[in-house]
Design a binder for these strands. Structure first.
Lengths: 216, 216
DNA sequence: TTTATATGACTGAGCGCTCGTTCAAGCATG
DNA sequence: CATGCTTGAACGAGCGCTCAGTCATATAAA
């Protein structure tokens, strides 16, 4: 298994500094802050969401906010990280239930696409917002993104050559993994059109056929 | 043919107001402005690009800038529109060369993907920037995006049922069109990973196989 | 041809405002 | 009293946009 290790220390990391001594308090407060921030970012975007709005929505003063988080950019990073953790967990859950046989690939795809449906707002927001991360955090966030894609890649490669699946070259497996990842996200970032023409179940059905090459 | 009509009045539209009387001058100056703005937006993003930077890069005073363009948001719209026109033209060019037979679909995909490679910066920028458009303009920009996707959809549907292609249901054609569109753009917005692992020609080769169902 | 006037492109200092961030002072707990 | 947490007024950099004024050129009058 080439499964890359993902550090999933919930959010108590020392990565982002804080003035507060009690680490439990930090975790609890940051939860609150991140939760309200996610909502605000989804609703207004990064720039139109002010630190004051965030403070108010989390029932803090701005002063307090800056005790728990050192800058708006750092907060943005925490937000991205939390969302990725949520997606990753959901996907891994879906994966653990099935043992990668023939039709199970379709299962995994389907589960993942449901996650994308449920978290559409979050996914869209991530697309819009990663650009504002300082380089240091951007790299980390892209790594997290890659971690999720790697789940598919690993699933595919564990399948390659078995159960009437053709033996697939690494490059192909790699790219197909990315395709699955992106076609899921596409449901989020093209929903302005897709939701008018498909239900999520239509979408899953057709895309699964598409991915598995049943169309042409 | 369900080809939707696309208004391709270059950029002389009355859509975006100006104080300047001479329409030729408006066209010429706006060209300059849009050109430098595209570069700046690609380099710094929308928010970090100030109107003063734009003015300087176009060899104007800010005052003058605002004679030709009524707000930064309007300018953003002009930028998006111009890029879409460029993509659309390139795609239509590619399409007109081949007469939609069997292998020509692969040709079109390949041409489109080359456009996405060449205009990667622009495509990425559009993804990051559409969110800042006022609703009125956003709708128009999404329509332009759809126009491009429709080129693929029309190509596919003119192909459906002929030349050993299966007869495809409308929904499927529709979605596959979007998939082609997005898989092209993916080369731009995932290049942080893809460019390390594929050349554009690798990418085209594998994706074409993928789309045409030759993989599984 | 010269002079007076009108036009409209162009200039850039500056207004009004927002926003991220800080810090001196307050409060609660042990 | 000390420590740890909270508060919100204050700061100042930076932004989009305006507007009173300049200047080159075109037109009209003499």
């Amino acid at each position: 298994m080439e499964q890359p290790k993902t550090d999933t220390t919930p959010t108590a990391d020392t990565e982002v500094p804080t003035q507060i001594k009690n680490p439990d308090l930090v975790m609890e407060r940051r939860r609150q802050i991140i939760d309200s921030t996610v909502k605000l970012f989804i609703q207004h975007g990064y720039h139109k969401t002010t630190t004051r709005m965030i403070a108010k929505a989390s029932n803090f003063s701005i002063g307090s906010l800056y005790e728990y988080v050192s800058s708006k950019e750092d907060l943005l990073y925490l937000v991205c990280k939390t969302i990725h953790e949520e997606v990753q967990e959901a996907v891994e859950n879906a994966l653990s239930k099935t043992d990668m046989g023939k039709k199970q690939l379709a299962q995994v795809i389907s589960q993942y696409f449901y996650v994308c449906d449920r978290m559409g707002d979050h996914i869209l927001m991530m697309y819009q917002v990663t650009q504002f991360l300082p380089e240091k955090w951007k790299t980390k966030v892209l790594t997290n993104e890659l971690n999720i894609t790697n789940i598919f890649i690993n699933a595919l490669s564990s399948l390659s050559g078995k159960n009437s699946f053709p033996k697939l070259d690494n490059q192909i497996v790699n790219l197909v993994g990315h395709n699955i990842s992106v076609l899921g996200q596409m449901w989020a970032f093209r929903r302005w059109h897709l939701k008018n023409n498909f239900t999520i179940d239509d979408y899953i059905k057709i895309q699964t056929d598409f991915i598995l090459g049943h169309i042409f």
